[in-house]
Amino acid sequence: MTYAYLFKYIIIGDTGVGKSCLLLQFTDKRFQPVHDLTIGVEFGARMVNIDGKQIKLQIWDTAGQESFRSITRSYYRGAAGALLVYDITRRETFNHLTSWLEDARQHSSSNMVIMLIGNKSDLESRRDVRREEGEAFAREHGLIFMETSAKTACNVEEAFINTAKEIYRKIQQGLFDVHNEANGIKIGPQQSISTPVGPSACPRSPRDTGSDSGCC
């Protein structure tokens, strides 16, 4: 399938806050109750439609646990958007936001759009961080803010899509140079005239091997 743009996203934040669950809910519309610690990076992709344009989100779900962090950091580079996640039932995950933010800003483009996410909003009775605190943190650091639940899917679509809208807005305002790879944005294969399309990784029948266009 063709797309106008591809945006690279990273999902970062402490272990156990629900990063992988947010991704799974967004791409597969399901919830995983067991915590399968991520080591390294897991990937997801999904098309969204912004302003009538097809945009492919390529999502890098990184490991939150400290011992994996030094390695995953190196993959922040070239992200157009970041979801910075904390768990509203665990204050320490909120307290660590500053360090995550520093890391993100240091290892990626200054234009990167960051969405702060207070996840597990379904666990209201166990809430440890007030919504206003999240809002204040976001305001102070120039982030977008939402509370989500990867379990009930509440605001999950919105979190990913609003981030894309903000990136798209920045592109239209000329704040993002879409030709600079470091910005985490790519122009889709059909849109670009000067950029050659790389070899496709799609299975094809041997009859098709003469054609140069991928099946995706």
């Binding site: 390294g40 990076v41 990937f43 990784a201 099946c215």
Partner: peptide, 13 residues
């Protein structure tokens, strides 16, 4: 799932 194209799922040290 959609079209059987290969997709990168994970990168692990």
């Amino acid at each position: 799932k959609e079209n059987g194209c290969l997709q990168l799922l994970g990168l692990f040290p």
